[in-house]
Design a binder for these strands. Structure first.
Lengths: 94, 94
DNA sequence: TAGACATTTAGAAAACTGTCTAAATATAGA
DNA sequence: TCTATATTTAGACAGTTTTCTAAATGTCTA
């Protein structure tokens, strides 16, 4: 189930940009929001979607909530694409 | 632009299943539709989305239209995921 | 405990998506 | 040319998604 959620999460360009920002290091919700021309609750919503898809994790530090990448799901997705580029036969879940 | 279209195309489970079916070889629109519990026009719509995202190609052979995978876009997507799993710094388009 | 700051939750509106049925288009063969 | 088969296009409808504003929650410091 999380596989489908991850694909849907990544389908949105704002969420992909958030993921790209997090590659350079962990960021607070506010720091992430500052990169977008969008209200904070909207960014918060995107963060929630990414979290539910297990693509990011969060932790509170005082007033701030830090977000970080969780690369384990990326590895599953990477494998899915890899199987198309290489010719093989296998492909679970789909 | 096609990058975003490809991500959106892949976000749907029916379309991912179509792509998986095509890994085993080219299929006609009708053969593809027979794998789904859905009317043919709906499948045709999904094929159109995949085609616009450049993930599949089609060719007519008499009455039939054959669909086949176009793996070049898969390679771009594969690279995008690879860059997350490996730590690197680069990431264009997002 | 009060006030300030950081962030999320709730609820609503607009836009987008997936599916359906009916009709159109394209091809093959009698 | 008529009919059957394969497939797409058009238009409608329900459900989902994205965004907004307003309000709630959580934490720090005076």
């Amino acid at each position: 189930m999380s596989f489908n959620e991850a694909f849907k999460a990544i389908a949105d360009p704002t969420r992909r940009k958030i993921l790209s920002l997090l590659r350079k290091g962990d960021l607070t919700a506010g720091e992430i929001a500052s990169h977008f021309d969008m209200q904070k609750p909207s960014v918060s919503h995107h963060l929630k979607v990414l979290k539910q898809a297990d693509l990011v994790q969060d932790r509170r530090e005082g007033q701030h909530i830090y977000y970080s990448l969780n690369t384990t799901v990326f590895q599953d997705l990477l494998r899915w694409f890899y199987d198309f580029v290489e010719k093989g036969e296998r492909n679970d879940e789909d």
